[in-house]
Amino acid sequence: MRIPTTLRRRPRRIPALPALVVALVVAVAVAAAGWYGDHRAGQRDRAVRQALATAPAAAKALFSYDYRTFDDSVANGRTFATGAFADEYTSTTSTLKQTATKQQAVVLAEVSATGVVTAGTDRVELLVYLNQYRRNVSTAGEKVDQNRVVLTMVPVDGEWKVVKATAI
């Protein structure tokens, strides 16, 4: 038995224009998401480069001092600190001054290597391998302390500053 053509179902067709519009919207959304991801990665890479460039000078300033120019050493270190860490640094170094002067202590910090722990566009954590060369009246010659410090850095007015320092 044959079904009359008037009763046959015809395949449903999707109108071409709406399908094209949907495909175009999806393509634009995918392209925008790709561009945004690439843009953010570029910003993150720039932040890492800037923080890595600042970290050796910051670590040297924060972890070095000379009893003869102690206040200048601390003032230099403070230029690399920000937020609550700057206050903590000031407090810690003020309690250290009397001992440093009494012991005629000289500590020179040198960064031997740095590495990225985590990175974002507005916060970078760096692992800093830091050697502190120290001498004082109680020590014969120079001693070396090998330290590892995680510096958390943030941008402040276009410069990267240390907001936290954690010895590990």
Score class of each variant (00 low, 15 high):
D87N: 05
Q103C: 00
T99R: 12
V107F: 06
A105C: 03
V26Q: 05
A23Q: 07
T79H: 10
T93F: 04
A27L: 15
H39Y: 14
T139C: 06
T69C: 02
Q103K: 14
V106K: 11
Q104E: 15
A113K: 08
T93W: 04
Y129H: 15
K143I: 10
K97V: 11
A119M: 03
V116N: 02
S138H: 12
Q132T: 13
A61C: 06
V74Y: 01
V28I: 14
T114V: 08
V30E: 03
L62V: 14
D71I: 01
A61F: 08
L96G: 05
A33H: 09
G115C: 03
F80I: 10
R123H: 11
A32W: 05
Q103V: 09
Y89T: 13
A109L: 11
T79V: 12
A113T: 01
T121D: 11
A51L: 10
L24P: 00
A59D: 07
R40V: 12
N136M: 01
V111N: 09
K102S: 13
K143Q: 15
D66M: 04
R46Q: 08
W35D: 03
Q98C: 03
R46Y: 00
R49K: 10
V137E: 14
V124T: 05
T90S: 11
G37M: 05
A113E: 07
Y65W: 05
T95P: 03
T114N: 07
F70V: 02
F63G: 01
V106M: 14
